[in-house]
Design a protein around this nucleic acid. Structure first.
Lengths: 342, 342
DNA sequence: TTGTAAGCGTTATCAT
DNA sequence: ATGATAACGCTTACAA
C-alpha cells in the first residue's frame, strides 16, 4: 500500500521475517546482532530501497538530523566557503545543513539562539566568528545539550569544540615579509573592536614590528570595520601622515581594496609608491589591480573539520580525535608588494 | 515532568481542561471553534510558553517545515543574496532554510534531488538558476508533490512558480547607453551556453545594436563562462581585433573584472581607451578600479518574494497572489564608461 | 463545537 | 540475540 515507493520499517520487518526492533538495530548498527540476521535484513533493505524516515527518527530520538550554521558575518565569501566546507562533510550522510543568521548586536540574540536550538532540536551547530567568540553562546549550547564547534582565530575552547586559525602568527609573517623588502614605515588598517580576529591580526602586526625593532607611532594605526569604505577612509588618514608610509597592512582584503582606491585617487602607483598586504584571500584579492598579496586561511577546510567533529560517531558520542583543530594560514605573494622607492 | 520547560500539547490540554484535538485546532487556526475555548487555550499556551514540536508535526503531517534552497551557482555573492532574501521571508515563521547544492552536470542530479525532497519531505524548494531553467526539475517537484518556485532571467513558468528578472531588456538599455555615448564598435563577452541568463543578455545586446542599425561582426563576440579568467581571455581576443572595440559589454561583473585586467595589461586606460559595462552589481563592481558601470538586478527581493510564494497560506493551499513575479533591473552608472576618443 | 481512538514511522524498555 | 509493547507529540478520521 505504499504510494510513492516509500517503504517503512514495517515492510522490511515483515519481508525479512523479523521484528521492527531488529531492523532498527540493523539501521543503527547495534553490535549485538547475529551476522546472518543482519545480512538478511540488509538484503531486504537494499531490495526495497528502504530509507528510514528522518522525521520519525527525529521524534523518537528527540534529536533532528540537522546541523545548524549560526553566523552574523558580513562577508559573503567567507560564509559561502564555510557552507561549502560543511556541506562537503555532510555529503553522503543523513545530515542536512540549516542556516541561521543572528544579530549579535541584538539584546535577544541569546534567546533567539536558544529558541532555535530547542525547537529544531538540532544535532549540532557550527558557530562562525564573531558570534563564536561569545562564551555565553557556547555555554548556552552546553546547557541545552546541543553539540557545537566554534570557528575562530585563536583557540578559545578545547579541541572538541574548536577549530582555529593562527592569525597572529600569519600576520607576523606577512609583515615580516614587508620588512624584509625594506619597508620601515608600515601602516595598519585594523579591524573592528569586538572581533577577536581583529585583535589577533593587530597583535601579529605589532609582534613583527617589535621583532624588527621598529617603532610604531600611533599615527600608523587606523581603525576600520572590515568594509571597503572603512578601508578607504582609514587609508586616507594613513596617507596624510608625513612622511607617508611606504606600505600598509590591511586586516582584511575588502578594506585592502579600499586602500587601493584611496591610493589610486591620490595618483599613487601600487606597488611602486605603496605596497599593500591584505588578509583572507577572497576572490577580490586576485581580481583587483594589481593582484593583492594577502594571507590565505583555509576556511573551507576548517568548516569541514568542524562539521566532521560535530557528526563524528553519528548518534553515539564518540569524540572526533582525528580531526585537526589548528589550521595554518599562508602568505600568498602577488603583485601589490615591492621594495620601497626611497 | 517536563525536564527542559518543553511543555507538550497534552500539558496544554490538561490545564485548559480540553482535549488535545481542541488544542490542535487552536494551533492550526481551525475556523470551527468556540471563541471562548480558543481564548482560554491561547492563554494557557502563552502561560506555558508552549511551542508545538516541529518533529511531531512533520511526522503527522508527512511534511517538514523546511524550505530548501537548491542551487549549483558558481557565484558566492549571488547565492548569499538569495539566502538573505529567503531568510528575510522566513524570519518569524515556523520555517527554516536548508541548503542543498547540486551538480547540474552530474547524471544523477535528478535522482539526488528526488531523494532529497522525498526523504526530507520538504515543504517547498526555491530553485536557483541555472538549475531552475531545467524543466524536468520542475516536473519532478510536481510529481513528488513538493511546492517549488523557480528564479530565472525569463518567465519560464506561471506566476505561482516563477520569479523572473528582465535581463534582455536591461541589457538592451545598458548597451543603448553605450551607443548614446557614441560607441559603435562594441564587443560582447557572452556567458556560458546552457545558461538562460547568458542567452537573454546576449539577445538584449543584439537587440540594442539592431535597434541602432549597427552591424555585429562575429569577431565582436567572445564566449566566457562567468569566471574572471574566462573574461580575461575573452577580452584578449576582443582587443586583438583591428580596429579595436571602444567598448565591451560583459555578461557579468566577474568577467568584467577580467576584462579590466586584460585592458590594463595592454596599457589601456579605462574608460578613456575602453568603456566597460558589467552585469550583476556584485560588490566587486564597486571595488574594482575604475568602479564598474553595471546592471543591478534585485536578487534578494526576488528570493524573498519566491519564499513568500512558497509559504503563503501556511499549510493551507492558498496561492500567493500578492507577490510580484517580474522584477526590473536597472543600470548603475559608475566610472567605467566614457565617450570614445576617436 | 468538541472529544475519542487510531495512526504517522521510528526507538526505548524490558522481557525472553 | 530477538521481540512485544509502549512511548515520542502531533493530526486525521469519525463520533458524539
Amino acid at each position: 500500500m505504499q504510494k510513492t515507493g516509500q517503504s517503512t520499517i514495517n515492510d522490511v520487518a515483515r519481508i525479512a521475517g523479523v521484528s521492527k526492533k531488529t531492523v532498527s538495530r540493523v539501521i543503527n548498527r547495534s553490535p549485538l546482532l547475529n551476522e546472518d540476521t543482519r545480512r538478511r535484513v540488509e538484503e531486504v533493505i537494499a531490495e526495497l530501497g528502504y530509507i528510514p524516515n528522518p522525521q520519525a527518527r527525529a521524534l523518537a530520538l528527540r534529536r533532528n538530523f540537522l546541523i545548524g550554521l549560526v553566523h552574523d558575518n558580513p562577508n559573503a565569501q567567507t560564509v559561502m566557503n564555510v557552507q561549502q566546507g560543511m556541506l562537503e562533510a555532510l555529503h553522503g550522510t543523513e545530515f542536512e545543513m540549516v542556516v541561521r543568521p543572528l544579530d549579535r548586536g541584538s539584546a535577544t540574540m541569546l534567546d533567539d539562539l536558544r529558541h532555535f536550538l530547542e525547537r529544531q532540536r538540532l544535532f549540532g551547530v557550527l558557530l562562525m566568528p564573531p558570534i563564536s567568540e561569545n562564551d555565553s553562546v557556547a555555554r548556552l549550547c552546553d546547557d541545552i545539550g546541543c553539540r557545537y564547534v566554534r570557528m575562530g582565530s585563536a583557540m578559545l575552547d578545547d579541541t572538541d569544540h574548536m577549530v582555529a586559525s593562527n592569525d597572529r602568527e600569519a600576520v607576523h609573517a606577512a609583515v615580516s615579509f614587508l620588512i624584509e623588502q625594506g619597508h620601515r614605515r608600515i601602516g595598519l588598517v585594523a579591524g573592528p573592536h569586538g572581533f577577536r580576529s581583529a585583535r589577533e591580526r593587530r597583535q601579529g602586526f605589532e609582534d613583527a614590528l617589535a621583532a624588527a625593532g621598529i617603532a610604531l607611532p600611533r599615527s600608523m594605526i587606523a581603525d576600520g570595520n572590515y568594509t571597503f569604505d572603512s578601508g578607504l577612509v582609514a587609508a586616507e588618514r594613513l596617507l596624510d601622515v608625513v612622511p607617508r608610509p611606504t606600505a600598509i597592512f590591511s586586516s582584511n582584503d575588502e578594506m585592502a581594496a579600499g586602500v587601493i582606491h584611496a591610493a589610486r585617487q591620490r595618483g599613487l602607483d601600487i606597488p611602486r609608491d605603496l605596497s599593500i598586504v591584505g588578509f583572507d584571500d577572497t576572490p577580490i584579492a586576485a581580481h583587483v589591480w594589481p593582484p593583492l598579496t594577502t594571507v590565505r586561511w583555509p576556511i573551507a577546510s576548517m568548516a569541514r573539520s568542524a562539521a566532521l567533529k560535530l557528526i563524528a560517531g553519528g548518534v553515539e558520542q564518540e569524540p572526533a580525535v582525528e580531526e585537526p583543530s589548528l589550521f595554518l594560514s599562508t602568505l600568498i605573494r602577488r603583485g601589490s608588494v615591492a621594495v620601497p622607492r626611497e
